[in-house]
Design a protein around this nucleic acid. Structure first.
Length: 702
DNA sequence: GCAAGGTC
């Protein structure tokens, strides 16, 4: 029997269907499905893994963080433990009955490594297989590609797998060694540990540096002159053509010069075409999801569910060009019955030739993300429906014509001052009709011609300030990581989520905590190698060299160890400074704001006996001011004061969603909210946000 | 209680 091993259940099933001469028999080893069929007169069994089935880890004797010197991890042996017990058992069991094995995992570095991992399980069960291994390399899960690959079997590439293994080892060695060193230096044990890694640390540094830019930013004041003009119809807004005035006096003079009327001096119209968007690859999908308020990690999770339920295609792809083999009309056929887009899909079907847009990147491993099945709102959860709609609408947009817009610019003269008004309207909807996300409202301007006179109904001076660069949203960060080669399409959402879970960042757009800022700074100062995205770039080059047989895996890993030893030495010699930086950050996250009684800081403290936390004055015992704090969830000091009582405000993470409150249980605002709750409760209505906050504060402090 | 990479 020939055993065919692929990377995932779905691929195993499809391979069986494509190759089978006759029926495919379904079987199961415990819960792992496999497929038996005949190919070229020979019995074959196709089984799918679950990605990596082995995980690198250190031997048991290194498991104590306090007792083991982290330096030992640099040279410690690395074991591979089975991480998917069920799958491993199925592979071993099937291997016993096999006389040949074909590796059919994904055609990339990790795929080759996953194949080699599976082989180690197969050989364990049946050593005779060692001389009977072949590799099927296909880059698309289509009948044509798969049959071609199986008719042209090649050898497993030990070099390619080695490249993957070098990546694994280096990530574990650096990650584990530095995570433990930092956690020890700062004395953060248990769940409070501080993590460090090749991808997460440079990502944290990106966020921290943006925050530093914001802090260093000096806002400059400027003034604008805005006028409300009217010509019979509704009023519209025009601004002084100079835009930003740096001097208030100049702006005021311009404002005062304006007369009661303005005369049109120029009417300009410009047409523009907005081409339909390219098909979804993972990054574009995650970014679009983030823009409609679904975090990348949640979007990835939901897409995975929709994929396994058959609603959308495989969600991890770099491809932005639909393959020839994709039957666009068939997809439109079932979309014609989907709520909200049915009519649109029907019209596309009836309109004749379909010309989908194409993105820059064309790969053949997977198609771009597109809908594969009809769904109704009733059968999906609300967030699943939102994501399904996004994929469906994107697909329809890629088959639609461009949108056309008309930009009108009106110039006026009033009391010798030039004014300008602009507005854009959509003249031809095209794809915008179905893909409405982030669509701007039309800005209508009245139809005016040169020489027309309008009334200046109102004019005012606006005092503004230049703004610092914005914080990264999660979608923006995903794109930035891709540009810098950090992480992969499959891991980026998780990496970002980790930064949240470790207490390095919060909010969206992303705000680093003081601890996150401090860890980023300390790593940059004393272990700059792990703080830069260039480590990944160099690793990629080394991995190419390994896979091309130019260098050995061992020499690359050894060289990396050597570098880490030097980094480690430097860290050890700067341990105090390193720890001080991070402690300062941690203290920053525990500083809530000024004490109302003495002006010193209120900080998060714990009761010695019951370990419960509270806000206490750092002037203790001179000042004995305290306030209760919620016991559950992380507390983020906001640095703001409650407008009602003046006490510090905090954000509490954990629970279903973060909530913001001041630390004062007797705040007049809360009392006000409690009163209105009593009133509305009499009327049988929902309690408001503030009342729930009060309840939570009370509950968590008792 | 370490990382990052697959996949559910």
């Amino acid at each position: 029997m020939r055993l065919i091993i692929s990377e995932k259940a779905n691929a195993a099933r499809k391979i069986a269907q494509f190759l089978a001469e006759g029926p495919v028999k379904e079987g199961k080893h415990r819960s792992v499905p496999y497929h038996t069929f005949t190919w070229r007169g020979e019995e074959c069994v196709s089984v799918g893994l679950k990605g990596h089935v082995l995980n690198p880890e250190y031997p048991e004797e290194y498991s104590n963080w306090q007792k083991v010197d982290p330096r030992e991890l640099i040279d410690a042996r690395i074991l591979k433990s089975v991480s998917e017990k069920g799958v491993a058992a199925a592979v071993r069991s099937l291997a016993k009955k096999a006389d040949r094995v074909i590796i059919a995992t994904d055609f990339d570095r990790e795929g080759e490594l996953i194949g080699v991992e599976a082989l180690s399980l197969a050989f364990e069960a049946n050593p005779a297989l060692m001389d009977h291994v072949e590799r099927a390399r296909f880059s698309a899960l289509t009948k044509g590609e798969v049959t071609r690959a199986f008719e042209n079997l090649v050898e497993v590439s030990r070099e390619l797998a080695d490249a993957g293994e070098a990546r694994q080892d280096i990530d574990l060695i650096w990650g584990a060694t530095l995570t433990r060193w930092v956690s020890r230096a700062v004395k953060r044990y248990g769940s409070a540990f501080l993590s460090v890694g090749r991808v997460q640390s440079p990502t944290l540094v990106l966020i921290a540096e943006r925050e530093l830019e914001r802090r260093a930013f000096v806002p400059e004041p400027y003034w604008e002159v805005e006028a409300r003009l009217q010509n019979g119809g509704g009023p519209f807004v025009a601004r002084h053509a100079r835009g930003r005035f740096k001097e208030e006096a100049e702006a005021r003079r311009a404002l005062e010069n304006l007369s009661e009327t303005a005369v049109v001096t120029e009417v300009r119209q410009r047409e523009a075409t907005r081409p339909a968007p390219a098909p979804f690859n993972t990054t574009a999908f995650l970014t679009a999801a983030a823009n409609i308020g679904v975090s990348p990690s949640r979007a990835a999770r939901i897409a995975e569910d929709l994929y396994t339920e058959g609603y959308i295609s495989y969600p991890r792809t770099d491809n932005t060009v639909y393959p020839e083999s994709l039957d666009l009309r068939e997809v439109l056929g079932f979309l014609a019955e989907v709520e909200g887009v049915g009519d649109y899909a029907g019209r596309l079907l009836g309109a004749g030739r379909l010309t989908p847009t194409r993105g820059r990147r064309q790969t053949t491993d997977h198609p771009p993300i597109y809908p594969t099945g009809r769904a109704s709102r009733a059968e999906l959860r609300e967030d699943q429906w939102k994501i399904y709609q996004l994929v469906v609408r994107r697909f329809l947009a890629t088959l639609s014509g461009p949108a056309k817009t008309l930009r009108t610019t009106l110039r006026f003269e009033s009391g010798g001052e030039p004014l300008v008004a602009g507005g854009t309207v959509v003249t031809e909807e095209g794809w915008l009709a179905v893909y409405h996300y982030g669509r701007r409202r039309d800005e209508e301007l009245p139809r005016l011609s040169e020489g027309d006179e309008v009334r200046v109904a109102e004019a005012e001076l606006l005092a503004k300030e230049t703004q610092p660069p914005g914080r990264y949203g999660q979608g923006r960060l995903i794109r930035l990581m891709e540009d810098l080669g950090l992480g992969t399409k499959a891991t980026r959402p998780g990496i970002i989520q980790n930064l949240y879970d470790r207490g390095y960042i919060h909010g969206d757009p992303i705000v680093p905590t003081e601890t996150g800022m401090a860890v980023a700074k300390a790593l940059k100062d004393f272990a700059s190698e792990i703080a830069s995205h260039e480590m990944t770039a160099r690793l990629e080059k080394s991995m190419d060299a390994i896979s091309e047989g130019r260098v050995s895996k061992d020499s690359v890993v050894e060289e990396s160890r050597e570098l880490l030893r030097r980094v480690y030495d430097h860290l050890e010699s700067s341990e105090e400074k390193f720890a001080d930086i991070v402690w300062n950050g941690i203290r920053g996250d525990e500083t809530l704001g000024p004490c109302p009684n003495c002006g010193r800081n209120l900080v998060v403290r714990r009761n010695r006996r019951n370990r419960k936390r509270f806000a206490g004055c750092e002037g203790y015992p001179e000042c004995r001011t305290t306030f209760p704090l919620p016991q559950k969830g992380d507390i983020i000091p906001l640095g703001t004061a409650c407008e009602a009582c003046g006490l510090p405000e905090i954000k509490v993470l954990g629970g279903r969603r973060p909530w913001v409150t001041c630390i004062n249980m007797d705040c007049p605002k809360k009392q006000e909210q409690r009163r209105s709750r009593e009133e509305t409760q009499a009327g049988g209505e929902e309690p408001s946000e503030g009342q729930r906050d009060r309840k939570r504060l009370e509950k968590s402090t008792t």
